[in-house]
Computed example of a mutant assay.
Amino acid sequence: MRLDKFVCKSTRLNREEAVVVIGAGKVAVNGSVVVDAGAQVHESNCIVFQGGCLKPRPFRYLLLNKPKNTLCSNVDGDHPSIFNLLDVEYPHELHIAGRLDADTTGLVLITDDGRWSFNVFNPKYHCQKVYRVRLRDSIEGEHKGEIDKQLVTRFKQGLELPGETKPTLPAKMAYVSEREVLLTISEGRYHQVKRMFATVGNRVVGLHRERVGSIECDVPCGEWRYLSDEEVEGFGFSPFSELDNRL
């Protein structure tokens, strides 16, 4: 973690104020004054400011059911930011893990733990994301009520998306109705679900993320909750196992 971020997370200083006090030589790391705000530090270091050893606030992990026409951004733009829906302290410390398009709804994870969010959406962990997809055209197969088996096979084998050299990783499709499916993917390329269906000649007209890993989108639209410790640790890796010196 950067030193200025550590100071912010341990005090009421904002990033600009933290940079100033660090540059003024008012912060020491393990007994030595450090004036580089970008210096990498670890939670186990003794970081002293104003005579006391700083202790960062615990990391926070939130789940939000994102409404349509909102932005996965910390600030408003063409649509309002989803951060307007949160009632928490220090919202500027939080970031969004696994952003959704403005017109996409469903599960969004929000945290101030950069290592955890990096690992959740790191392709090497193959974290599965489940989307409910509404389509323009019917995808029924030969028998009514069955999804086109050839299409299922194509998604399972991987699709070559325009402008990309590697096919998508295997995806699982489950039938809901003639124009609705559940799609499970384990990567997060740009507009991936929409591009996958465009590649096979269809069009996504509604997209909702229902699950990430074992975490279900179980709150009403526009509402949020904190994740339990079991949910945070349930992705098959330790939140503190990697990237100690990168974030």
Score class of each variant (00 low, 15 high):
Phe118Thr: 15
Leu151Asp: 03
Phe197Pro: 00
His126Glu: 12
Arg136Val: 03
Arg203Gln: 12
Phe237Pro: 02
Tyr90Asn: 08
Asp76Glu: 09
Gly222His: 12
Ala171His: 02
Arg225Trp: 01
Gly52Glu: 13
Glu242Arg: 10
Glu233Thr: 08
Asp148His: 13
Asn202Lys: 14
Leu109Pro: 01
Ile96Asp: 11
Gln150Thr: 11
Tyr90Val: 00
Gly114Leu: 08
Gly236Ala: 02
Gly52Val: 12
Lys124Tyr: 08
Ile147Met: 14
Asn30Leu: 06
Ala28Gln: 12
Pro220Ser: 06
Gly23Pro: 03
Lys156Ala: 15
Val33Ser: 07
Leu169Asn: 07
Asn119His: 01
Glu230Pro: 03
Val181Asn: 07
Pro162Ile: 12
Val205Trp: 02
Gly163Trp: 07
Asp36Arg: 14
Thr184Glu: 11
His191Asp: 00
Arg246Asn: 06
Val205Ser: 04
Ile47Gly: 01
Pro123Glu: 08
Cys217Asp: 01
Met173Glu: 03
Leu247Arg: 11
Glu160Asp: 05
Gln50Pro: 03
Phe49Tyr: 15
Val176Ile: 15
Ser73Cys: 10
Glu146Trp: 13
Arg209Ala: 11
Arg57Gln: 13
Glu160Ile: 06
Gly51Pro: 00
Pro80Ser: 04
Ser214Asn: 07
Leu183His: 07
Lys5Ile: 09
Tyr175Met: 13
Arg136Met: 11
Val232Gln: 12
Asn30His: 04
Phe235Val: 02
Arg99Cys: 05
Val7Ser: 06
Gly201Trp: 07
Tyr61Val: 10
Gln128Ala: 10
Gln40Gly: 11
Cys217His: 02
Asp148Val: 08
Cys127Gly: 01
Glu230Ile: 04
Leu227Ile: 04
His126Tyr: 07
Val41Ala: 05
Leu3Ala: 10
Gln40Trp: 10
Cys127Ile: 15
Ala97Pro: 00
Gly51Asn: 10
Leu169Gln: 12
Lys5Arg: 14
Leu86Trp: 10
Arg195His: 05
